[in-house]
């Protein structure tokens, strides 16, 4: 965060007073109300207001702002706006694939193809029509990365898959939310040096909360300890995605929720499946794809549901899992 000594247009007396009172960074001022500033720095109300406004102006200067038209031009100049998923209908609905600069969540019950889909998307990075040495970060929380499977699946892509490609996948094994946030904060160098074009976290809900909070021990059902971390985790992931304009993909499992009271869409006492980690996390991802298993007659049918997307409505895409990966099946085939 910006240091106060870099803020222009501050009165010398106030600058000195800020320094003496231990105000070094802009948030130190913004965090406080006018009355708190008046008390701490011995100012009158007008001076306190002026101080807040000057600091605010200085912060606002560095905020990214532009007209929507300019934003569109900027995006159109970018050659990497979407990561093609290889499923034509999904790509069409999402206007080209998994969007860059945002966080996409792949949710589904156990063994429904989440990791396969993640591998599939990783391989698509190598399938792009560029000569650049693109890299991938795979943050593995369950030791789910299966190199042999990736090599097997690589036959599906058109580019020749070599050991060099495998070398370009950087895998990080972590266990806790704190590790993840720490890792993400130090990620910039990796992204720049290895030309990273995709970040995958598989899976986000397997992370342990290492924080030692008293209320967590006394009240194990209190999940408040995790909630601030989830928000921070989401903000860090989003910032990384946007700063480098790359897609971030996280996988998550479903959990059962027993609804005992009023909810807007379910009746009392029904049990149903929701993505794990709760509503706060649900709000935090930009796009959510749910992998569903359902039985139609005798045959099992898998579908991808676009559950949340800023660009398209809810829709379903049938797919199948083969040794070569994840493939779309056409609607006619499914009916037949």
């Amino acid at each position: 965060m910006k240091q106060i000594r870099r803020v222009k247009g501050l009165d010398d007396d106030i600058r000195k007073s800020l320094e003496l009172n231990g105000f070094n960074y802009c948030p130190d001022v913004i965090d406080r109300t006018d009355y708190q500033l008046m008390e701490r720095l011995n100012l009158n109300k007008a001076e306190a207001k002026d101080l807040t406004l000057t600091i605010s102006r200085s912060i606002v200067q560095s905020i990214r702002k532009m007209s929507a038209l300019k934003l569109r031009d900027n995006i159109q100049q970018n050659t990497y706006t979407h990561l093609c998923s290889g499923l034509p209908d999904l790509d069409q609905q999402l206007r080209g694939g998994i969007p860059c600069g945002t966080v996409t969540e792949i949710v589904g019950p156990r063994s429904c193809g989440k990791s396969t889909m993640a591998f599939n998307l990783a391989l698509r990075v190598f399938d792009r029509e560029t000569d650049s040495e693109d890299g991938i970060v795979f943050i593995d929380t369950q030791r789910s990365f299966d190199a042999a499977r990736v090599v097997e699946m690589s036959k599906s892509i058109s580019n020749n898959f070599t050991e060099d490609h495998l070398q370009r996948i950087s895998i990080f094994n972590i266990q806790s939310v704190q590790d993840l946030i720490g890792l993400l904060n130090d990620m910039e160098e990796v992204i720049v040096s290895k030309n990273i074009k995709l970040i995958i976290v598989d899976s986000i809900n397997a992370l342990r909360d290492d924080s030692e909070r008293e209320d967590k021990e006394t009240n194990p059902s209190n999940n408040a300890a995790g909630s601030h971390l989830l928000g921070q985790q989401a903000a860090t992931l989003k910032k990384l995605a946007e700063d480098f304009s790359i897609p971030v993909i996280v996988t998550n499992t479903m959990t059962k929720r027993m609804d005992s009271g009023y909810s807007n869409n379910k009746q009392v006492g029904t049990e149903y499946q929701v993505p794990a980690l709760g509503l706060l996390w649900s709000h935090s991802v930009n796009t959510r794809l749910i992998l569903q298993d359902s039985t139609f007659g005798h045959s099992e049918q898998r579908k991808i549901k676009i559950d949340k997307s800023p660009i398209c409505g809810v829709c379903y895409i049938p797919f199948e899992i083969t040794p070569l990966g994840l493939f779309q099946i056409s609607n006619e085939e499914m009916v037949g």
Binding site: I63, R64, A68, A235, E242
Partner: peptide, 18 residues
């Protein structure tokens, strides 16, 4: 589109300042 001014905010400090 040019009549829509877009701001991207990354933390609450920026939000309050804006």
């Amino acid at each position: 589109l040019s009549n829509i001014q877009y701001y991207r905010i990354y933390n609450y400090i920026e939000q309050i300042s804006l």
